[in-house]
């Protein structure tokens, strides 16, 4: 019996309204990020807004649609922490691309 009880306890019972609200927010955020392009914003404002809306949308999807907000932290950290290490890889590749670009500009396009 305890097994059955635990099983029911682990199921996700949320009102449908919650999903509709999140759906609405995802629409609003997507519209906002589309408007960033539509109005032709440039520079740090553009990149900042794009990243902001991206992170908010990703957070809503993972937390509510994928039910991560109601999981135990042991699972949450096991899944969320490793991808953040990709940022280190991003850092490495930024240095690498700058170096490649420098080499190309310094040694290959001088004559043009």
């Amino acid at each position: 019996m305890s097994q059955v009880a635990t099983h029911i306890e682990t199921q996700q019972h949320h009102p449908i309204k919650l999903y509709l609200v999140v759906w609405g927010w995802l629409f609003i955020l997507s519209t906002c990020s589309y408007l960033v392009d539509f109005f032709g914003l440039v520079g740090y404002l553009r990149w900042g807004l794009i990243l902001l809306f991206m992170v908010l949308k990703a957070g809503l999807i993972v937390a509510v649609f994928m039910h991560m907000a109601w999981e135990r932290l042991a699972l949450l950290y096991a899944i969320i922490v490793p991808p953040t290490l990709v940022l280190v890889f991003v850092g490495i590749m930024v240095f690498e691309s700058n170096y490649t670009l420098f080499s190309r500009l310094a040694f290959f396009v001088v004559g043009r």
């Binding site: 991808p83 990709v86 890889f89 991003v90 590749m93 930024v94 690498e96 691309s97 700058n98 490649t100 670009l101 190309r104 500009l105 290959f108 396009v109």
Partner: peptide, 16 residues
């Protein structure tokens, strides 16, 4: 997918 997006970032940042 991170590797795909990273390689995209790398080629976009390093192209002349």
């Amino acid at each position: 997918f991170s590797c795909f997006l990273l390689s995209y970032m790398t080629v976009r940042m390093s192209t002349v």
